[in-house]
């Protein structure tokens, strides 16, 4: 009898192991956010430093900044699947992970509604939730096909970002922030360059922003709203005079994930307040 029990338990144990879900490491907060929206986070065993986790999962190991993970660090979490955006890396680590037999799937990193749709659908396919993913991407697809009209006032918006105290950066064209401003029907007050550049007092005044857009973390790094208003040159801008600022949570504003349509609508309504 005891023997039979042992055999049964052994069989059950092995069955449990073979049915155990694949172990997934997510590299990129947008990937983690998408997995959460797809209710596919049970298989997560580690995430990158930028991912935001629910309270129950907040103890998951962090493998570092997703562009600079280490092969051994990722392997130490014994993943079957590493799911990240194309920005995840560095490239030699991705190569080494694949050589070690890990399935590495990198989805597009494009910061646009179209990119978000592709990303969500591809992630859904990889975790076996195609239908949910299609449903999740549907509003984004519709918005991409029917963008909102340009706001009648078309306010000029300046996106400011800072990682540490001092030296804030401004967003030029072709950034996630610039795309969000465009999607919300407003105008980016800086058009002279691509990507981010350090803020200078003169270019700030010259760009004549009517609204300042910042993220929660960015605002904190710049010393709160007072810090923003005391930036050199700020008091000579329309936004500085009227103290018009919109603060949105970092990943909500810039992730281009499942919540992006909401983020666009929220940005639009707050710009017209």
């Amino acid at each position: 009898m005891v023997k039979i029990k042992i055999v049964l338990i052994t069989i059950l144990l092995f069955a449990g192991i073979s049915y155990a879900e694949t172990r997934v490491v997510s590299l990129g907060s947008v990937v983690t956010e998408t997995l959460q929206a797809l209710d596919a986070t049970d298989s997560l065993v580690a995430v990158d430093a930028s991912s935001e986790l629910s309270d129950e999962q907040s103890s998951l190991p962090r493998v570092g900044y997703y562009r600079m993970v280490s092969t051994e660090g990722v392997l130490s979490t014994r993943p079957d699947l590493v799911l990240g955006t194309e920005d995840a890396g560095p490239p030699h680590v991705i190569k080494q992970l694949r050589q070690a037999g890990v399935d590495v799937e990198l989805v597009t990193a494009e910061k646009s509604l179209e990119g978000a749709v592709t990303r969500i659908v591809d992630i859904g396919k990889k975790v076996g939730k195609q239908e949910q993913a299609l449903a999740l991407a549907q509003p984004l697809k519709e918005r991409a096909e029917n963008p909102v009209e340009v706001l009648p006032s078309a306010p000029k918006v300046l996106f400011l970002y800072a990682r540490g105290a001092g030296a804030p950066m401004v967003s030029g064209t072709k950034t996630g922030a610039a795309e969000m401003i465009r999607l919300a029907g407003a105008e980016n007050s800086v058009a002279g360059f691509e990507g981010y550049r350090p803020l200078t007092a003169e270019s700030l005044v010259a760009s004549k922003p009517e609204v300042i857009l910042v993220t929660t973390n960015g605002l904190e790094a710049m010393g709160g709203k007072d810090g923003v208003w005391s930036l050199p040159g700020m008091s000579h801008t329309p936004a500085g005079k009227e103290k018009k600022i919109v603060v949105m949570e970092d990943t909500f504003l810039l992730n281009f994930g499942p919540r992006t349509v909401d983020a666009v609508d929220q940005l639009r309504s707050r710009l017209t307040e």
């Binding site: 580690a46 430093a49 190991p61 900044y65 280490s70 051994e72 660090g73």
Partner: peptide
């Protein structure tokens, strides 16, 4: 480097 903040580096 490999251990102090593992699994990051």
């Amino acid at each position: 480097c490999r251990t102090v903040i593992a699994p990051a580096e």
